[in-house]
Computed example of a mutant assay.
Amino acid sequence: MKIIRSKDFTAPQAWGALDVANMGGITTRLHWTDQPYKWHVNDGEEVFAVLDGIVDMHYREDGEEKVVTLTTGDVFFAGIGCEHVAHPQGEARILVVEREGSV
């Protein structure tokens, strides 16, 4: 059993993570960041839930870049082949569920 107070979590560098669980190769990690990530495509599906803060999620659809603003409680699902990058507005805490070892 674990209880994690996500609002209390920080990391020494952007995108630092706390491993919450690994369920048969699917990881759940809590990330803290105040910097953008990098454009990437996961090797599987990804669930990205904003627990605290505001994140502009940039993604490409049919070669066109789009942006959606995610606030606390919002969830972004990146299907296979979805190129995306998260840009937090200030500090953010994000729960990410994805295949173990994914980018």
Rank of each mutant, 00 (worst) to 15 (best):
L18E: 15
W32A: 03
A49N: 06
K38F: 05
M57R: 03
M57N: 09
I94S: 05
D56K: 10
P12A: 15
E83G: 07
W39P: 03
E46S: 01
V103F: 13
Q89W: 10
G53Q: 14
A17D: 07
V85A: 05
V47A: 03
Q13E: 15
R99K: 15
G25A: 05
E46D: 00
M1G: 15
H58E: 10
D8L: 03
T10M: 01
H31R: 05
H84G: 09
I4P: 05
W39N: 01
I54P: 00
A11R: 05
L30M: 05
D19L: 08
I26F: 03
G44W: 05
D43V: 12
E83A: 14
G81S: 13
V55A: 14
A17L: 12
E98A: 05
T72R: 13
T33Q: 04
I94Y: 06
V96E: 02
H58T: 01
G81A: 10
R93T: 00
G90I: 13
K2D: 09
Y37V: 10
L18W: 08
E64K: 14
E45N: 01
T10V: 01
V47Y: 01
K38E: 04
F9Y: 15
L18Q: 15
I94A: 05
V47M: 00
E61G: 05
V97S: 11
E98Y: 00
Y59E: 07
E64L: 13
I4V: 15
F76M: 10
P12M: 11
R29D: 11
N42R: 06
V103L: 09
T33L: 07
A21K: 07
A49K: 07
V67N: 06
V50H: 03
V47R: 02
A78E: 02
A14K: 06
H40N: 06
I4S: 06
W39K: 02
G79R: 02
G73K: 11
I54D: 04
T27E: 15
F76L: 08
R93K: 08
T33K: 03
T71L: 12
H84K: 04
A14W: 09
A17P: 00
A86Y: 02
T27F: 12
P36H: 10
E98V: 03
E65H: 08
F9I: 11
R93A: 01
L70F: 11
H84P: 12
T69I: 06
R93W: 01
M1Q: 13
T71Q: 14
I3S: 07
V75G: 08
A21H: 07
V103Q: 09
Q13Y: 14
F9E: 12
I26K: 06
Y59K: 06
K38C: 01
T71N: 13
M1T: 15
A92V: 01
L70R: 09
V55P: 08
F77A: 05
W15A: 11
